[in-house]
Write a protein that binds this DNA or RNA. Structure first.
Length: 654
DNA sequence: GCCGGTTACCTTTTT
DNA sequence: GGTAACCGGC
């Protein structure tokens, strides 16, 4: 029997004035009590506000914070919402369970470890770890020599992940998306089996495993499912249009018993199909949960009228969409501008000029953003910004965590937690002089034979290798083994060991050394190695390597450079979208595929709807694309041939 | 047999 | 700037 929730009978006693802060649709969603609810929230329609107020209201009316689960796309998003809810009400709101599907799955899998077969804990592999393992196995299996055109490890990782996230067999993925590898199918399947086997043997999970093992845990263990389900009496899922089949299934398994489930999303902003997201999940939600109430949020509070008029035209070109009628009461604002520039560098200079101009008008740098389709599109601009001393933070693209020196240091910590982590051992050992794959393998096997965790390395005899560095490595682990240390102290010890290697390997070691110092300060926040390692894989700092990694960069006045994907959910006074050139945005890879093109269009829509007051598009007019041999010279088809009263055009001829 | 340096080629988006 | 194949030296 479930305890009835004490919803307030007399709403006058509530602390927060909901009706004054919300419009009627928002209020209806916020006041929704039990059952299933679908909120279709157009861009800028106050989606976050609605979720935040609903959280606060549930808590205010007596729902236990611990029984609310808020699943979001990034952990930052959920923290932000819970912080705002706490400001509205009180700090009870901070005790709400929140995070991404992956982090929630991670927490549950560790809590119920004995049922998962990963009794002694597991290490989470990020994408490049997964690729490293695949590459290792491919070499071991001797597949390389058979066929010259065998897919590279990156491609293999893509094929495997696609198969999991789209619930297709490897053969199906190959025939749909990689037909040119059909002749290698058998080897690829063999490799995939081996990959799965090795992950289990070495206590490793990739991102997809977190979801699939969690799904299996819920399916195969009804008691655990009931337990988890009853502790999440109120489930809210944000960005539901970007969930894939497994995630939708997890939601179903969690909510099926009580059906208190609210999902929020916008089919027009679905931009993760490449990793299996299916915006049909959101449309089919009312069929999965009958009696679902549907609420549409259609008033846009973000953009001025001319911007909204243009973005409505952009999304109107989508073939498959569900009608929404976005309107705004924000008047004024100027018509968005499309600028053709001659070269990439003149585009960069146009952006720099405009930014300086706006800055002089008093718009702070962090109210402006430059958005692009792919991480490398901003390289030239970054140089130009540096030249004019404009400070910026880049989000998306290459990550801090993916840089070699960071991964090197983490590998040393990972084997302490999980001595079966073969990828990390190899990484550590290959850093030593005179150690290659073969020697690394021998040493790794000897360590495991000892059955004594990472201290197995003490048993390595000198004759096993000509490497002198092995003694220093033993010494490092001896230090860690003999002294109880905090996470940060361990990090500092590893760093001390690693420094000579760093200096020897990289000519830009001073910069990398600063990154590592920053890593230590991050470690100071953790009491357990396990949670530090899990967070580094699940929620790595999202800024790129080159940036100043000061923790509070969001408080400082920096221009934001971001991929469109990483800009989701955010907004700025002034937005520049660069490289709106057909072949760049939409990407040249999408031009031959109807569905891919649709996603690119939605991506352009997401980018343009980030702007509050000013919106600019720009592209260089003549670019030779080496990979295709094509000359790109047309503006993006998504913003071409739009009447001048909606989109002005200008040419800059420098 | 194994390691490490050299060269040609590609490079979307992310948990 | 990263990957994979190739080659020379120990």
């Amino acid at each position: 029997m479930q305890t009835p929730v004490p919803f307030a009978e007399d709403r006058k006693n509530l602390q927060i004035q909901y009706a004054e802060a919300l419009n009627p649709s928002q209020l209806e969603a916020v006041n929704f009590n039990e059952g299933s609810l679908l909120v279709i929230a157009g861009a800028g329609s106050g989606k976050t506000r609605t979720l935040t107020y609903r959280v606060a209201r549930l808590v205010e009316e007596g729902v236990l914070p611990g029984s609310i689960l808020l699943l979001t796309f990034t952990r930052k998003a959920s923290q932000e919402m819970l912080k705002r809810a706490a400001t509205l009400l009180d700090n009870r709101c901070e005790r709400i369970a929140g995070g991404t599907f992956h982090s929630f799955a991670n927490a549950m899998l560790r809590r119920h470890a004995s049922q998962t077969g990963f009794t002694s804990g597991f290490t989470i592999m990020d994408r490049s770890d997964a690729e490293a393992l695949i590459g290792m196995l491919r070499k071991e299996m001797g597949i390389v020599s058979k066929s010259r055109a065998f897919p590279r490890k990156q491609t293999l990782a893509n094929i495997f992940s696609r198969s999991v996230n789209k619930a297709l067999s490897i053969e199906e993925v190959i025939s749909y998306d990689y037909p040119h590898f059909t002749s290698d199918s058998d080897d690829i399947i063999l490799l995939y089996r081996e990959y799965k086997k090795r992950k289990a043997e070495h206590y490793l999970m990739d991102y997809d495993d977190l979801l699939t093992y969690f799904q299996r845990l819920l399916k195969d263990h009804p008691q655990i499912r009931a337990k988890i389900s009853s502790s999440c009496r109120y489930i809210m899922v944000d960005e539901y249009q970007d969930t894939n089949q497994i995630q939708a299934d997890i939601v179903y398994l969690l909510a099926e018993s009580h059906k208190n489930i609210m999902v929020v999303g916008d089919d027009s902003q679905s931009i993760y199909a490449f990793r299996g997201a299916n915006f049909r999940n959101i449309m089919e939600f009312p069929e999965i949960f009958p009696d679902t109430k549907v609420i549409k949020l259609e008033e846009n509070y973000r953009s001025v009228q001319p911007i909204l008029a243009l973005t409505n035209v952009i999304i109107d070109r989508a073939v498959e969409k569900y009608s929404k009628n976005l309107f705004t009461q924000k008047s004024g604002g100027s018509i968005p501008l499309l600028v053709d520039t001659l070269t990439e560098n003149s585009q960069s200079r146009f952006i720099v000029d405009k930014i300086m101009e706006f800055k002089q008008q008093g718009i702070p740098l962090n109210e402006m953003a430059v958005l692009f389709r792919a991480g490398f599109h901003s390289f030239d601009l970054e140089i130009e910004l540096g030249r004019y001393g404009i400070s910026f933070v880049k989000v998306g693209g290459f990550k801090f965590m993916e840089s070699a020196h960071i991964k090197d240091v983490l590998a040393h910590l990972r084997v302490i937690f999980n001595p079966y982590d073969r990828i990390s051992w190899y990484r550590i050992l290959l850093l030593l002089d005179k150690v290659g794959p073969k020697t690394a393998q021998n040493i790794y096997e000897e360590i495991l034979r000892e059955q004594s965790g990472y201290t197995g390395i003490f048993a390595i005899k000198d004759k096993a290798t000509r490497a002198k560095g092995i003694d220093r490595l033993k010494d490092l682990f001896a230090q860690i083994d003999s002294n109880p240390m905090s996470v940060a102290e361990m990090g500092a010890t590893v760093l001390n060991y690693y420094e000579p290697i760093l200096v020897d390997t990289y000519d830009d070691h001073p910069k990398r050394a600063r990154d590592l110092e920053h890593l230590i300060t991050i470690m100071e926040r953790y009491h357990q190695l396990e949670s530090f390692l899990a967070d580094m894989a699940l929620e790595p700092p999202n800024t790129s390597i080159d940036d100043n990694l000061s923790l509070d960069y969001s408080n400082k006045d920096h221009l934001i450079l971001s991929t469109v994907h990483s800009a989701k959910g955010l907004e700025w006074h002034t937005v520049f979208i660069i490289w709106t050139l057909d072949g760049r945005f939409p990407s040249i890879h999408a031009l031959n595929n109807e569905e891919d093109l649709e996603e690119e269009l939605r991506l352009m829509y997401v980018a343009a709807t980030r702007a509050k007051e000013n919106l600019f598009f720009s592209y260089p007019m003549q670019i030779y694309d080496r990979s295709s041999g094509l000359m790109l010279s047309r503006p993006s088809r998504f913003i071409d041939r739009i009447p001048h009263d909606l989109l002005e055009r200008r040419t800059i001829g420098i």
